[in-house]
Design a binder for these strands. Structure first.
Lengths: 336, 336
DNA sequence: TTGTAAGCGTTATCAA
DNA sequence: TTGATAACGCTTACAA
């Protein structure tokens, strides 16, 4: 045998027709066949080491058992555990993941999406959506899609996100308990749900404590550089700030740098908090108080949702929100 | 149009036969067609938003433009940059990556390999090979495969690895320059090329400096736990050790823990070095002197090699070794 | 240069 | 319950 065995080879060995072999091989149709022939076919398949040709199957059934997973950059420590969760979740349904990075470039995202659809991908898990992104469709039918970590304003696409509001409320509570009142927020980009929800939650949390949320600077991105810039602006425009709630851990890191530049001590002069609890390259000084989000579980749940969605594309879109947990470290000190 | 456009739709719109459309669409065969018709077809394809059905193409051509990438665990910080490099390298050849994690389980690896082969994967990039792993074949023909980071003893499979020998030599030179002579090695598993090559290089480097490499303990794995265990054994069996060359960064981290347990100070009492320069979760104390390997480039080069291999499976197997760089931090002190 | 036709391996429909 | 047959969309001899 110098080529992979086909279902015809199996059928021949089992002395049945290819169609019968197909029925015997597929668990869903196995009941259409007598147990005896089913066994003969299975046995033949085993001895030949038969594996179905998925290209042929895809062509015929119009499904591929492959899902596209699109993220900004795998090197962002947010994503490896999420992607791992996705992979494990997909595996449970016999699916595999086709992975693509966009570096945040919408054009690149389009390309990837097109290329993956051309490859008969059955659905997508996207970590790249913006608040105004719209649901994909193909010939009037929605393409099964699940958003992960970020979501759109429109509620028509299923999503799995962390509980941003609860996380921010907990951080603000911690700061208030430490005596802070002049608390600022380094917001993330407002076209991303994460940036927007956290900013909104910050406003809500402040008013709950009878404080006004006026010390807000919006950063250009969820990056260290943007965090540095944002902090400098913040220090220049809102004197008296004693605590900063950063939009995420990277912004908090940039904040650390800016504080050092300006000779401001953390946490003695200004307390700082992050969000996400990503593993840091190298040392953080001081260790950052932040909100841990369940990265792996977010991915796992997203995969489950996608499998559901593929099974029933018309079902209402679930929006799953997973609980978070505050991790107290050394970046908060009592207000002076 | 309630279904994706096929090449027939394109042909119809361009008023040519499907075969002609196919020739016009494929850059390799475009010269068989007049420029005028080629343009008409391309134009028609664009207006319809045509994307070729890859299942049909795969079925016909027996290639899928998909490569399988198999790693132990994406959450190991070694792998994200490697995988990202792979993806970028594959993209250059129009390929995409199907990703799978094995958690180091050979059975799981077999499953993945089979599942991916069933999906017509054109080749594999494996980060999971052991020294005694054998080249895969299918019907007598080798399955195009490239090994990353680890390789087999047999030289018949292409691989891309970091220069383990140079890295270890540089570390030993650093320690010797700091006055150390009683230098120990916490070796990684000897069935992995990384563990074996580093151990061998340690022996060579020591003799080059006229020192004997007798203080060696082999750890059960490249993990923090194994590093802790190994260090305890080392301290118990080889008194007088003033420096430890750990098999990788995780082993070094375990070493740190063991030293703290035993009340030994690092680097004052014992100097420690790592390998890989992975981004650490949280803080390391003291910052680890280690060898940085070019993760991204390793992945990129592996992808290039795979594309070459797919193009010409019979060509001799290249074994690419990429240069490394020592990163001096705070975990080495002068010998007392 | 273009059209015709066959076939890749599977599964769904229809008939026996 | 099983077999025959057609079709999925594409590429490639071969013929025109």
């Amino acid at each position: 045998m110098d080529r992979a065995p086909t279902i015809k080879d199996v059928a021949e060995l089992a002395k049945v027709h290819a169609a019968t072999a197909s029925r015997a091989l597929n668990p869903a149709t196995r009941s259409m066949v007598t147990a005896r022939t089913a066994n003969r076919v299975l046995e033949a398949a085993r001895t030949l080491g038969y594996a179905p040709n998925s290209a042929a199957r895809s062509l015929r059934t119009r499904t591929s058992l492959v899902a596209g997973v699109i993220i900004p950059d795998l090197r962002n420590p947010m994503f490896p555990p999420i992607v791992r969760g996705i992979e494990d979740g997909l595996r449970a349904g016999g699916y595999m993941a086709l992975l693509g990075n966009t570096d945040g470039d919408p054009a690149r995202e389009r390309e990837l999406l097109d290329a993956m659809r051309g490859r008969q991908t059955d659905g997508f898990i996207l970590a790249t959506s913006r608040r105004d992104s719209v649901a994909m469709e193909e010939g009037g039918r929605p393409v099964p899609t699940v958003l992960v970590n970020r979501r759109t304003d429109a509620a028509d696409v299923p999503s799995v996100t962390a509980d941003n509001a609860v996380g921010i409320h907990a951080l603000v509570r911690l700061l208030v308990a430490a005596g802070h009142t002049r608390i600022a927020h380094l917001a993330g980009p407002q076209d991303l749900s994460t940036g927007w929800e956290r900013r909104r939650a910050f406003g809500d949390a402040m008013s709950e404590h009878g404080l006004s949320a006026e010390r807000i600077v919006t950063c250009a991105g969820f990056t260290t550089e943007a965090g540095l810039e944002g902090t400098l602006t913040l220090l220049d425009t809102t004197p008296g700030t004693t605590a900063i709630v950063a939009g995420n851990d990277l912004i908090a890191l940039g904040c650390y740098e800016a504080l050092v530049d300006r000779g401001v001590r953390c946490p003695e002069d200004i307390s700082v908090t992050g969000f996400n609890d990503i593993p840091f390259p190298g040392r953080q000084q001081p260790a950052l108080t932040t909100v841990r989000i369940p990265h792996y579980e977010i991915g796992l749940e997203a995969a489950r949702l996608l499998l559901e969605r593929i099974g029933n594309p018309e079902a209402p879109a679930k929006r799953v929100v997973l609980p978070v947990e505050v991790v107290e470290r050394d970046s908060i000190a009592p207000a002076h």
